[in-house]
Design a binder for these strands. Structure first.
Lengths: 237, 237
DNA sequence: AGGTTATTTTGATCTAAATCATGCCAGGTG
DNA sequence: CACCTGGCATGATTTAGATCAAAATAACCT
């Protein structure tokens, strides 16, 4: 449910102007985007778009955190991706000419700006640099998706969990000198499980194991890892 | 191993000109591609490029069949994709600015044309239509890859196998009037297993099951399915 | 506070698929 | 021909992770 619906003006600011894909926009186009963008504050649990919804444009994450989910037949869902600030959502179905194939749900409250396809598509079509930026983004994500599939069928849960921690480290962690790092998990255990394609209980057990062996130290969503190499060894040796 | 190395001229013909992505090329660019393309016959088992090889350009499949594989730590590999004639391979790492992240291996002998990145990249950068074609291709594949991940962690092997048969039907099958269809598998059982992320034996057992129940009739690589709905029910009900 | 609802952990089974082992058959090849 | 070799099937056993069932913990109200 959407709790707050205050439209916010001037959301297309320097943050947007400098974002990975949109930095290719001309001043004219930026103004055009600014004119049509619809920005809104969302709360945890709010849904931005649903699986199978027609795709009407893209969403720019100004702040907050968004989870991209796919629902399974029996309540079991997978978390495909966490979108961080400065990311653009929904470009995939827009450019593939498809409906949304996943649901976007707010994990951490924030400001999301909608830009309709009538505005975005012509820009991508006529601005090669912008198109290339999305092309790079799409091909990178495709590589990651293929990697993920390969890892899920090839590695054990334990190895995949170690790998996931390393990926999250790059986004939500700050590491000190010697292999040690500290990490604030952006999601619940249940969502960690949904990212790995397993059950909550299985994640609990893996964490328990790693704790026992002193590889990690979990306190709620706060994680300390004494030596990153111990985690890396799990999936590269 | 590459057995035959005869360069073949004039491989960039009307087939290439009409291929999904390349139809956007101008006559001038087509000539330029024609001038630099290097075409070669490959035999079963030949490798076009290897995982971690630097990406030097793209490969157009004129004829034959190519498997895109990723190797696991212990000999276990996954088959990410089968490339059919008229498909372009290697565009993903090229546009992502990465090395090849999978190996391309010939499944059925055919003619493959190489076009170096120095030729291709500028064309994509300056021809928005061409870029858009690849953008559509990449975003579609990304959608499929996400779908695949979701299905592998959500569905049973049996359901996934049924789904795979339906996908292969679209490429290698011809269906008659009432739900019935016939399918010539393009790959071995082992490769079916590699596509599903399971072991050969497990695929054998699923096939055995479906046979028993009269849902399918396998004879070597020839498959007959009396009613496609029986397969569809496996993963949609 | 205390009561109510999520989230997480933990334990006891259960099961799908892996693993190990063996045998079958068709296609080459000396 | 006998002898491989590679792809496939099948049986017996093991195991990683699911499922079922409680507890323990944390968060959330009034």
């Amino acid at each position: 449910m959407v709790n707050r619906r205050q439209p916010v003006s001037n959301c297309i600011n320097s943050q947007f102007r400098n974002a990975a894909e949109w930095c290719a926009l001309s001043d004219v186009d930026l103004k055009a985007v600014e004119a049509v963008a619809i920005c809104r504050e969302y709360d945890v649990g709010d849904v931005i778009f649903n699986e199978n919804d027609p795709c009407r444009g893209v969403y720019f994450v100004t702040s907050g955190l968004v989870g991209i989910r796919k629902a399974g037949l029996e309540g079991d869902s997978t978390l495909l991706k966490i979108a961080y600030p400065n990311e653009t959502l929904g470009y995939r179905p827009l450019l593939a000419g498809q409906c949304h194939r996943a649901t976007a749900e707010i994990l951490k409250p924030g400001l999301i700006c909608f830009i309709n396809s009538a505005t975005v598509l012509p820009m991508i079509e006529h601005n090669p640099a912008l198109g290339l930026n999305f092309l790079q983004r799409a091909t990178r994500e495709l590589g990651d998706a293929e990697e993920r599939f390969h890892k899920t069928v090839t590695l054990t849960l334990r190895a995949r969990f170690a790998h996931l921690l390393m990926l999250l480290k790059d986004r939500c962690g700050h590491s000190s000198d010697n292999g040690k790092f500290i990490l604030e998990l952006p999601v619940s255990r249940g969502d960690l499980a949904a990212m790995l394609g397993v059950r909550r209980e299985s994640v609990s057990r893996v964490i328990h194991e790693l704790e026992q062996e002193g590889v990690t130290h979990f306190t709620d969503r706060h994680v300390e890892v004494a030596n990153a190499d111990h985690l890396i060894d799990e999936f590269r040796a």
